[in-house]
């Protein structure tokens, strides 16, 4: 696009004229009223400026690292340091403009960056040899490793306590875990799931034995009787998989989750398995009775802090 016609100017190097023209036109095309016309005008203005002053397209200089001063140096010059901090503390009471807040230091010693000097690769902050003494107490001890960056934006999105240290007062808690508002699957459903699992395991065993007998000859004992013993193993394998449920639970739309409604970690799942085996071995038939009174949060769920919920409560 030809910027000059948009700005109503002849091609010029006069930055002042370009700015004047832009300012005049901008007042007729306010950004909130004519967004598209404004974008065009702004682009034309930028292009015009770029052709008028090529240095605008050079990358801006990178500010130098503050020269690594040893903190011991400051310790040797305590009077200097306090000399700096004293007037600065007073400077906070709105010093009038153009009054040097450092009395005693001639103003022309302030190290202004020389104007019009092209931004070269030698950052001006390295030129610290001639710096006035009061700037020396800007003691920045530069560590070699980069400053610790707290990755707050990540921390914020993870529910946890990390961010809460930034708030003072109040009893700050994270939002309650989503499991609190998610109902557990009922006992009846869990029994049904268990029965279905038994059926599935027994079926697999029967078919397996049938195939075995066809190819290798009869094995004798009805193998499906081993189904109850295989149940915990099935649970361990299936609930730790991406299915998050035994076949019976899956058929009924149940899933095993942690308090954040996420899949269990392998370790968590192994813990759940262990708790299940131990409680069952310890209480044997009593476990049926106890679980009947636990509102669907069965003994091993409770101990292992895992949850069995219906997928419709998981929100997709």
């Amino acid at each position: 696009m030809w910027p000059w016609s948009e700005l109503g100017l002849e091609s010029t190097d006069d930055v002042r004229a370009i700015k004047k023209a832009y300012a005049r036109l901008l007042k007729q095309t306010r950004p909130d009223e004519h967004p598209e016309a404004f974008q065009r005008l702004h682009q034309a203005y930028k292009d015009a400026l770029a052709s008028a002053q090529p240095q605008y397209h050079q990358p801006a200089p990178t500010l130098a690292e503050p020269a690594p001063l040893e903190s011991t140096k400051a310790a040797q010059e305590p009077s200097l340091a306090s000399g700096l901090f004293q007037p600065l503390n007073h400077a906070e009471d709105k010093p009038p403009p153009n009054v040097d807040p450092f009395p005693g230091q001639p103003a022309d010693e302030t190290p202004f960056q020389p104007d019009n000097q092209p931004p070269d690769n030698k950052p001006f902050l390295d030129k610290t040899d001639g710096e006035p003494s009061y700037l020396k107490s800007a003691v920045i001890k530069l560590e070699q490793e980069p400053p610790p960056q707290i990755d707050i934006d990540t921390a914020k999105t993870v529910r946890g306590r990390k961010i809460l240290q930034f708030v003072r007062g109040g009893r700050s808690t994270a939002a309650p875990p989503p499991i609190d508002s998610t109902p557990a699957a009922g006992y009846g459903l869990r029994i049904l799931a268990f029965a279905l699992d038994m059926l599935v395991i027994a079926l697999v065993l029967i078919i397996g034995q049938f195939v075995w007998a066809k190819t290798m000859g009869n094995a004798g004992l009805p193998l499906w009787l081993a189904a109850p013993a295989l149940y915990p193993l099935t649970a361990l394998l299936c609930e730790g998989s991406r299915m998050q449920a035994t076949p019976g639970k899956r058929l009924l739309g149940l899933k095993v989750v942690n308090p954040d409604l996420m899949p269990l970690s392998q370790l968590h799942n192994a813990g759940r398995f262990l708790v299940f085996v131990l409680t069952t071995a310890l209480l044997w038939k009593g476990i049926w009775l106890i679980n009947a009174f636990l509102h669907g949060r069965l003994l091993h769920d409770r101990i292992s802090r895992s949850y069995v919920v219906h997928v419709r409560h998981l929100g997709g």
Binding site: K156, I163, L164, F166, V167, R168, G169, G170, R171, S172, T173, A174, A175, P176
Partner: peptide
């Protein structure tokens, strides 16, 4: 009241803007 009623007083909560953390007073 930040000192002697710190469980009922909260400061610097602007840092939690845009998050769903709950502060109890």
């Amino acid at each position: 009241r930040l000192i002697n009623h710190s469980d009922r007083t909260v400061a610097t909560f602007k840092r939690l803007m845009g998050t769903d953390h709950t502060i109890f007073l």
